[in-house]
């Protein structure tokens, strides 16, 4: 049985999923619909399907990851694929050469699906040019993280029944965030009003041209927001003088009840994880009833099942 049985009109004419950029509204909606089916399936006792039976899925992570990697692993296994995890240390010599060499080596093992995370923007696309299988971007530098944006959209849609017209405030380290870029692209495509809220040092140049409203104050940026999406602040941002201290950052940009009160009463609180409690988000807010952070993780598996399913349709059968 296929999880796509009820969404057989799915049109997803891409061989790879390298980013949200280039996806149409219809394609995104189709993936979200398919993800709903997968979410239902994942709540059953028997979660196992055979859509990907005989297929090999390789998780190739050049950057450490817990939840994204295990999420893809579980998604692949629930669909019946053979899953192999490969973690390549970032300390490997000659990273670029390793990338191409690894791609060629892996390609010779004839995988059907390759899930890749890499610390350099564009690296996954580069790799996709060297292999014969379908490639899924699980995060490339500060560029894109498409499955994260899809799972965020799915989570929002399940609670708000729509994306169009919602005010979504993405808050924190926009500069270094692939999650922010993919979300901006996806939410704009689906008609949301996207805001970014961050100190100027964490806002990349020209961000306003990506179709977002730019705020440097949480009070203003969160006003009447339907969705408050927090981003992780890496420790090294303090040492590179982008923000002075975690204390100051939390004071001005950490999500606490006072700031959250500016948003709509039924606003959702989201975070791609892993959270720094007390840095970008107050611990109680993270566990509040309005927080859907754990549901995001659940939807992560569903979205990845849908993506694997959609791409597998284009795999050669012989």
């Amino acid at each position: 049985m296929s999880i796509a049985a009820e969404a057989s009109d799915l049109s997803f004419p891409h061989r790879h999923l390298l980013g949200i950029e280039g996806l149409s509204r219809a394609e995104i909606t189709a993936l979200l619909d398919l993800s709903e089916q997968a979410a239902k399936l994942s709540r059953q006792i028997d979660k196992k399907r055979d859509d990907l039976r005989g297929r090999t899925l390789i998780n190739l992570f050049f950057e450490a990851s817990t939840r994204t990697q295990s999420s893809f692993e579980l998604a692949g296994k629930r669909l019946g694929a053979d899953v192999m995890n490969m973690s390549v240390g970032t300390s490997s010599v000659q990273k670029g050469e390793t990338l191409i060499d690894t791609a060629v080596t892996l390609n010779a093992m004839r995988p059907d699906l390759l899930v890749v995370r890499h610390h350099a923007a564009g690296a996954v696309e580069l790799l996709s040019q060297k292999v014969d299988c379908s490639v899924i971007n699980a995060g490339d530098g500060s560029h894109e993280h498409p499955t994260q944006a899809l799972l965020d959209a799915l989570t929002i849609r399940r609670h708000k029944a729509r994306i169009e017209g919602l005010i979504v405030a993405i808050c924190g380290d926009i500069q270094h965030s692939r999650v922010a870029r993919s979300n901006i692209l996806l939410l704009n495509t689906l008609g949301a009003r996207v805001r970014v809220v961050a100190p100027s040092t964490l806002l990349p140049s020209g961000i306003g041209r990506l179709g977002v409203e730019v705020y440097t104050s949480m009070r203003e940026g969160l006003a009447d927001a339907d969705i408050v999406m927090m981003l992780r602040l890496q420790r090294e941002r303090m040492t590179s003088s982008l923000v002075p201290s975690t204390r100051e950052y939390f004071h001005f940009f950490g999500l606490d009840y006072e700031k959250l009160a500016r948003a709509k009463p039924d606003a959702l609180v989201m975070h791609p994880g892993p959270m720094n409690r007390g840095v970008e988000i107050d611990s109680n807010v993270a566990d509040d009833a309005r927080s859907v952070i754990r549901e995001q993780v659940e939807m992560g598996v569903a979205v990845r099942m849908a993506v694997l399913q959609a791409l597998a349709r284009h795999l050669p059968n012989r």
Binding site: E21, A121, G122, D140, G141, S142, H143, E144, R178, R181, P204, S205, G206, I207, R209, L210
Partner: peptide, 10 residues
Amino acid sequence: EGEVATRLGL
């Protein structure tokens, strides 16, 4: 530096 770099994540 600018919009193109921001879009590419560079």
